[in-house]
């Protein structure tokens, strides 16, 4: 009886420690009015490295989005075109769309780029990791903000 109780407490404790440590990996953010108004980092985003992430396999944005500013024959058309996206959305709105698009559309095909939990059967290589780091998110949205018609 006491042994069972002890085991349950122990398991709970382990889960708590595990989830706490996993949580610590990502920075907490606040969603206000379908946006994340505050930057995830203290260093402001660098649009140049943002563009590199967008084009490279790291961000892989062209897999689904067309970006007329980029010269590349093969651009996906699953998501909306990113032409003028800097006019349509504020930085905070762009940030939420990258960090967790499910807040806006729970059926979104776009992955949450800043999420490392409540995912199923994640490849060991990526377990506990988000697709992009907080700084990479800031870099990408700082470049997206420059896309104006």
């Amino acid at each position: 009886m006491y042994f069972k109780l002890f085991m349950i407490i122990l398991i709970n404790f382990c889960i708590f420690i595990y989830s706490a440590s996993a949580n610590n990996a990502l920075i907490n953010y606040q969603i206000i009015d379908y946006a994340i108004p505050l930057s995830l980092t203290s260093v402001s985003g660098n649009p140049e490295s943002g563009q590199k992430i967008v084009i490279s396999r790291e961000g892989n944005c062209l897999a689904c989005h067309q970006i007329p500013n980029i010269v590349d024959k093969f651009q996906g058309n699953i998501g909306p075109s990113l032409a003028g996206v800097g006019n349509r959305y504020t930085m905070g709105e762009l940030r939420l769309r990258l960090v967790d698009p499910y807040v806006i559309n729970s059926k979104s095909l776009m992955p949450a780029f800043y999420k490392n939990q409540n995912l199923i059967r994640v490849d060991k290589k990526y377990t506990g990791k988000s697709i992009l780091t907080a700084q990479q998110i800031e870099d990408v949205i700082s470049w997206l903000a420059t896309l104006k018609n």
Binding site: G76, L109, P111, L119, I120, K129, I131
Partner: peptide, 18 residues
């Protein structure tokens, strides 16, 4: 997966897209 995708999301709903 980390991409959080199901088969149906691509193959039922947007077949033909690039």
């Amino acid at each position: 997966g980390q991409m959080n995708l199901a088969c149906n999301q691509c193959h039922d709903e947007i077949a033909g897209s690039y």
